[in-house]
Simulated assay, not measured.
Amino acid sequence: MKNNKQRYLSIADIAGKFDVSEQTVIEWIKIGKIKATYFNQGKWDILESQFRTTSEQDHERRSNFKKLWNKRDRLPEENREQ
Rank of each mutant, 00 (worst) to 15 (best):
M1K: 00
M1Q: 03
M1G: 14
K2L: 14
N3S: 07
N3Y: 02
N3F: 04
N4A: 06
K5C: 06
Q6I: 14
R7L: 08
Y8F: 15
Y8L: 12
Y8S: 03
I11L: 11
D13T: 01
D13R: 04
D13L: 05
D13M: 00
I14D: 03
I14M: 03
A15D: 05
A15C: 02
G16D: 11
G16Q: 06
K17V: 06
F18N: 02
D19P: 00
D19I: 05
V20C: 14
V20A: 07
V20G: 03
S21A: 04
E22L: 06
T24E: 01
T24A: 15
T24K: 04
T24D: 02
V25C: 04
I26W: 01
I26F: 04
W28V: 08
I29R: 00
I29W: 05
I29L: 02
K30M: 02
I31L: 10
K33D: 09
K33N: 07
K33P: 06
K35N: 15
A36E: 01
A36M: 02
A36N: 05
T37I: 08
T37W: 01
T37Y: 09
Y38S: 04
Y38D: 05
N40V: 11
N40P: 15
Q41D: 15
G42S: 05
K43H: 10
K43D: 01
K43M: 07
K43Q: 13
W44R: 01
W44A: 08
D45M: 13
D45Q: 12
D45Y: 10
D45A: 10
I46C: 08
I46K: 01
L47G: 02
E48P: 01
S49D: 10
Q50M: 06
R52Q: 14
T53R: 12
T53G: 03
T54C: 10
S55I: 11
S55R: 07
E56K: 15
Q57R: 10
D58F: 05
D58E: 12
D58C: 05
R61L: 11
R61V: 11
S63P: 03
S63K: 14
N64Q: 13
F65S: 12
K67H: 10
K67F: 06
K67N: 09
L68V: 08
L68K: 12
W69G: 08
W69P: 01
N70E: 09
N70V: 03
K71M: 14
R72I: 11
R72L: 11
D73G: 08
R74S: 09
R74F: 05
L75K: 10
P76W: 07
P76T: 05
P76R: 14
E77W: 01
E77Y: 04
E77K: 13
E77A: 14
E78S: 11
N79T: 12
N79M: 13
R80Y: 10
E81D: 07
Q82A: 11
Q82C: 09
Q82D: 15
